[in-house]
Design a protein around this nucleic acid. Structure first.
Lengths: 237, 237
DNA sequence: ACAAAAGTGTTGTTCGTACACCCATGA
DNA sequence: TCATGGGTGTACGAACAACACTTTTGT
C-alpha cells in the first residue's frame, strides 16, 4: 500500500475547539488527556484520523464520542503542522471549531469523558499548541460571526432577542444598543416569532423566537451586519 | 520514532492554486505532472511535505522550486483528505492559494518546469480532486477580495486605477462605475500617487500609483468595500 | 477640432446610529 | 402605581450609487 517511495508518512489528528454559551458567558469544552504524554493535563478533544475516514468524518466522530452530539456546527479552521508540535512523534493536526447548544450537551450522559466547561477567559493552559488553536478559533469566531449568522448554533431552539444580544455582546465584549439590535435582527427575516414569552428576566417578558431554517441556509453566505463597527472589535483577547 | 501505537501514518502533500493577472484576464498556473500516476496530465503544483518542514514551508518551497519566486502571497485554503483521492496511496493534501504578479514570473527562467498559464475559464481538467480545489480557491478569492485588499498582490509595483478596476471586474465578472471606483479606492489611503502617467490605453493618460505598504499591512484585516453588492457576486463560476 | 478615456462634482436615497418615548407586567 | 426591562418611532448624519460634466492629450 506504500507506493510513493522515499517519502515519510506521518500521523494525522483532528482537534476540536468546542464553544458553548450558558446565557451569560462563552465557554470552552476541554478534556483531561487520557494517555501519555501529558496524561491528566487539559487539552482540546481530539483523536487520530482512521484509515477510511475523511478529516471531517474524524472530527464528527471525535465530537460524538465525547459529547454524544451529532450534526453539530463544525468548521475546518487550520492545519497545525510544526514538526515538533508533538514531542512523541510528528503529528499533523487539523483544527476544527464547533458551536454547540450547551443545554443539549448537559442532557447527554457524558459520564466519564472527563470533559468540562470553562469560561473562555479562565481556561487553563493546554498541551502542545492547543492554546494557539484556541486563540485562532476565537479570532475566527469573531470574524465569521460579524458576517454570517453562525451564533444561532450556540442557542437552544427557542430563544429571545435579549438572549441573542447577550451572546453577541459576550463574543465581542461590548454592549450594543438594545433597540437597534432587535430591529436589525428582525429585519433579516431570519427569525420566526413564537406566541410564548420568557418572563425569567423581566416583568414584561420577551417573546421567544426560533430560527427560520430555510432562510438561514439560503442566506448563510450573504453578509449581514448585526455587529456595528466590526473593524474595531476583531482584535485579539 | 513511531511511538503512538496502532495508528496508521499517511503521506502529506501541499498543492498550490496559483493565480495571475495579465491585465485582461485572470489566469491559473498549471504544471504537467512528471511522475505516475497520470504522468503528463495537467495538475496543480504540489509536493510532499518534508520531515523538517511545516506545511507553510512546504508550500513556499514548492512555489519557489517551480516559479523561482519567493515571498509570494500564500494562504492556507483547506485540507482535502478523502481516503481515496489519490489512487496510489492515501495522501492528505493541504491546499494553498497563491497570488503572484505574472510579470515577475515571466522574467524568471522557468525553463523545463513545464508550467503554463491558462485562462481561468479555459483551464483543462485536472487530476484527482484538483478541479474541486480550484473551484474552492476561486470562491475564496472572491470572498476575501470583497473584504480585504489582497488583489494588489496580482499587480506590478506600479499600476493605474483603471488597471486595478479591470482586475476587480475580472474577478467578479461585472463592470463597476469607473468614477465611483476610483474615488472609493483613493479614499482608503492605500495608494500613493506617482508623478508618471501610463499613456498606453488613453490619450489623457492615467497616473501610476503604488501601494502604501504600511497602510496595507496595518489595515489588512479591516473590512473595505471596493466591491458594490458583494452578496450578489459571490456565486460560483 | 474631435474623440476617448480619466477623473471630479452633485444629488437623491439608503442605511445606521442615537435617543426619546411607549408598552406590558409583577410586585 | 411604580419600577423594570422589552420594544417602536423619529431624526440626524454618513456612505453610496447614479450620472452630468470637465479635463487632458494624441490624432
Amino acid at each position: 500500500m506504500q507506493k510513493y517511495t522515499g517519502q515519510k508518512r506521518v500521523l494525522i489528528a483532528v482537534d476540536c475547539i468546542v464553544f458553548g454559551f450558558d446565557g451569560q458567558h462563552i465557554k470552552l469544552l476541554l478534556v483531561k488527556r487520557s494517555f501519555e504524554p501529558n496524561k491528566g493535563k487539559w487539552s482540546l478533544m481530539g483523536g487520530f484520523i482512521e484509515a477510511d475516514e475523511t478529516p471531517n468524518d474524524a472530527a464528527n466522530r471525535v465530537l460524538e464520542l465525547r459529547t454524544g452530539l451529532k450534526d453539530v456546527y463544525l468548521e475546518q479552521l487550520q492545519v497545525f503542522g510544526d514538526p515538533n508540535r508533538d514531542p512523541v512523534e510528528r503529528t499533523i493536526s487539523i483544527a476544527y471549531f464547533a458551536l454547540i447548544d450547551i443545554h443539549r450537551y448537559e442532557n447527554q450522559l457524558n459520564d466519564d469523558a472527563h470533559a468540562e466547561w470553562f469560561l473562555l477567559n479562565e481556561a487553563p493552559s493546554l498541551i502542545f499548541d492547543h492554546n494557539e488553536m484556541v486563540r485562532l478559533a476565537k479570532k475566527q469566531l469573531r470574524y465569521k460571526a460579524a458576517l454570517h449568522p453562525i451564533l444561532f448554533n450556540l442557542l437552544p431552539d427557542r430563544f429571545t432577542i435579549p438572549q441573542l444580544q447577550a451572546l453577541y455582546e459576550g463574543i465581542y465584549q461590548t454592549e450594543f444598543d438594545d433597540r437597534n439590535f432587535s430591529r436589525k435582527v428582525l429585519s433579516t427575516g431570519l427569525l420566526i416569532k413564537l406566541p410564548e414569552k420568557d418572563k425569567q428576566t423581566s416583568k414584561k417578558g420577551a417573546f421567544y423566537y426560533r430560527l427560520n431554517k430555510e432562510e438561514y441556509l439560503e442566506n448563510f453566505e450573504s453578509f449581514l451586519n448585526f455587529v456595528p463597527n466590526p473593524d474595531k472589535l476583531l482584535s485579539d483577547n
